[in-house]
Design a protein around this nucleic acid. Structure first.
Length: 275
DNA sequence: ATTGTGGCCTGCCCGC
DNA sequence: TGCGGGCAGGCCACAA
């Protein structure tokens, strides 16, 4: 998906619809509901209710409704985008088709403004159909948000249960742990590669092998990288990104980058300084 | 129980 | 130009 930075931009856009009332719900492709609720059910739950807040946890966008209505949870998959009043939060996702296509709208809330006049539409635009809409998602199934992760929280994220033999397990690769949304919410493939590159840590390092200082530095790197790339405008604005390709070199020391699969995802890193 | 794998989907880009 | 293969910022069900 869009990672947490893109979803934060979606949240800021959706926040402009706070105070408007849902007058109808469009579900051109019911697969977006994943069987969690019927089209009729989601209409009953939402029509007539006001949007009261736009929140985010990790990559999950949360739209609260008033008058006892549910919270609408939106996940954006790999190519999902949010459109409000014909305004796109992200002009073109790096791995999605550029621009807007009416045929790629999978879900829509038609809105009325406070004065009762036409209040526009909030649309989920998702060519690849990996996005999902759910009612009242279990927010606590997600770990703490990466934007504000503390050292203590990160220590818990990286900790491994002792093995049956009693000795502490080395744990899965560091990158796999950072991508596990149930332990830490928000980081995706590009952000993790950028963060580990900045933190001088190999994505293959066993997650339980970090020293106290390592964890301290990594927590700071996560927060600062998230903040900086959000200011720059998204997950694809990292310093490693331009070199994340065949023949790419480390912007720090010029070493040829390594490409491999770690945590099930394509991973680029510098074998020279990431250890 | 944790961890790894395949599958879900579609569009784009590259090489033949 | 046309076509096939490989690839993609995520997540979920499933197997070991």
């Amino acid at each position: 998906m869009p990672e947490m930075l893109e979803v934060e931009l979606y949240r800021q856009l959706a926040d402009r619809a706070t105070g408007r009332t849902i007058t109808s719900v469009a579900v051109p492709d019911s697969r977006v509901l994943r069987g969690d609720v019927s089209v009729a059910g989601i209409r009953r739950a939402l029509v007539g209710r006001p949007l009261t807040a736009a929140r985010r946890r990790g990559k999950l966008l949360l739209l609260d409704t008033g008058d006892g209505g549910p919270t609408v949870g939106m996940r954006f998959g790999m190519t999902g985008g949010l459109v409000l009043d014909d305004h796109q939060a992200i002009d073109a996702l790096v791995y999605g088709p550029a621009g807007f296509g009416r045929q790629w709208v999978r879900f829509g809330l038609h809105l009325a403004g406070r004065d009762g006049n036409d209040g526009g539409d909030l649309l989920l635009h998702d060519p690849r159909r990996f996005g999902r809409v759910v009612l009242d998602p279990d927010e606590d199934a997600l770990g703490p948000d990466a934007a504000t992760v503390t050292v203590a929280q990160l220590r818990h994220v990286l900790a491994s249960r002792p093995s049956p033999s009693g000795r502490p397990a080395a744990g899965p690769p560091l990158k796999a742990r950072l991508l596990d949304q149930s332990r830490l919410a928000g980081l995706g493939n590009l952000l993790v590669d950028e963060i580990l590159w900045r933190a001088d840590l190999s994505p293959r390092r066993p997650s339980g092998s970090l020293s106290g200082d390592d964890v301290n530095v990594l927590a700071r790197r996560i927060r600062s990288t998230v903040a900086q790339l959000l200011r720059r405008g998204g997950s694809h604005t990292g310093d490693l990104m331009p070199e994340r390709r065949a023949g790419g070199h480390c912007p720090k020391d010029g070493a040829p980058l390594t490409k491999s699969t770690v945590g099930g995802r394509t991973t680029w890193w510098c074998p020279q300084h990431q250890v």
